[in-house]
Write a protein that binds this DNA or RNA. Structure first.
Lengths: 191, 191
DNA sequence: TGCGATATACTCATTGAGTGAGTATATCGC
DNA sequence: GCGATATACTCACTCAATGAGTATATCGCA
């Protein structure tokens, strides 16, 4: 337990799935377009190939988070219009409200994605999302520091790894401070 | 292209596979023990569950990187003794000599693993491995800075993501400086 | 004496990540 | 009228990762 690429700290696996669902929140859309938007808007946050996008959309459909409807076009090939379901909407909103993971990668991916969609759909909640993330990071730092002190002194490589992770967390704290000013986020938390 | 969890920058996927092969370099061993050693030595670098370890070992066998031999025990259940093959040995040594990836995670994983095994098997080459990694990091920083300057100004989230990645790379540079002194690494490269 | 915890040593089923190539049509510039 | 690019997907494959299940042996302890 407690390690790096253990992706899901509490909940589901961290994947662009939820972000695709987020784009579907804006209204019905089809695979090609969703992928395009995704790449333009969040292409430097996540990497998502076209085929992977289609695979994920198919999964959303199977889960019942979206419905597909085939739309014929007289010239171009038919396309699957996707519409988010009530369940999908619910799942997305739940995810949006939640504090996310505690490793560097999942913060870059999930937190930025939350920020993006929160600004779009629930701008009043952005402060809360920010605060939740800050707390997660503090906890993570405490955990890592604790692990450091309990690590046998001969474990040089494990120590280096923990050391790097700890530094990364502290770096993320600084980075988040700048986001705070950039996005004009106000928090009532104790700083 | 060029994104975060695009795991394989040049070569194969980044996975504990190569590390397991590294442990096999020390001599024949069986799954249970390999996993134990792995967790003790590099448990804070990689996460590797037991079942995943077995799956990877099976793959190594299928690839021809290792041979298995069933060894009966009179009390405990029989076990598969694994012995690395010439091909496996070759593959591992090639990997060891190579400069590795350019994202934060793959550096923590791959570079630390290289360092670990280099100190065990080829201590004279550790300096070269270190240098190769330093160069990769510098290149990565240049790439990221370049992407930053070419990013359209409205792309706030993509910018934040790149910004964090850039900071992380610079952090890793500092972290590597400490490794250099800790491991007494000397390089003839221009600093 | 016997009970439960722990260690040894694996197997299996399932879900999901991710790539890369393939398919087919339409439009646009030259 | 030719090739590049855009639209809109599909398919086959490999690998990651979890979690539960199986079976035996040993050790402490009450």
């Amino acid at each position: 337990m407690s390690i790096s690429q253990a992706k899901n700290q509490h909940s589901g696996t961290i994947s662009p799935e939820i972000a695709l669902l987020g784009f579907l929140m804006a209204g019905p859309c089809h695979g090609y377009d969703l992928h395009q938007r995704f790449v333009i808007e969040l292409g430097n946050v996540w990497h998502l190939s076209q085929s992977q996008a289609y695979a994920i959309l198919k999964r959303l459909e199977n889960k019942g988070d979206a419905f597909a409807r085939l739309v014929e076009q007289d010239k171009l090939p038919a396309r699957q219009m996707l519409r988010i379901s009530a369940a999908g909407r619910q799942r997305f909103m739940n995810w949006l409200a939640k504090g996310c993971g505690s490793n560097a990668r999942s913060i870059r991916l999930e937190f930025l994605t939350r920020l993006y969609f929160s600004n779009l759909y629930t701008p009043d909640n952005t402060g809360q999302i920010y605060s939740a993330q800050s707390i997660e990071i503090k906890n993570s730092i405490n955990r890592l520091e604790n692990m450091m002190t309990h690590l046998p002194p001969d474990q040089a490589y494990n120590r280096l790894s923990l050391d790097l992770r700890l530094r990364q967390m502290k770096l993320i704290q600084e980075w988040m401070e700048e986001i705070k000013t950039q996005f004009n986020i106000t928090t009532e938390e104790t700083p």
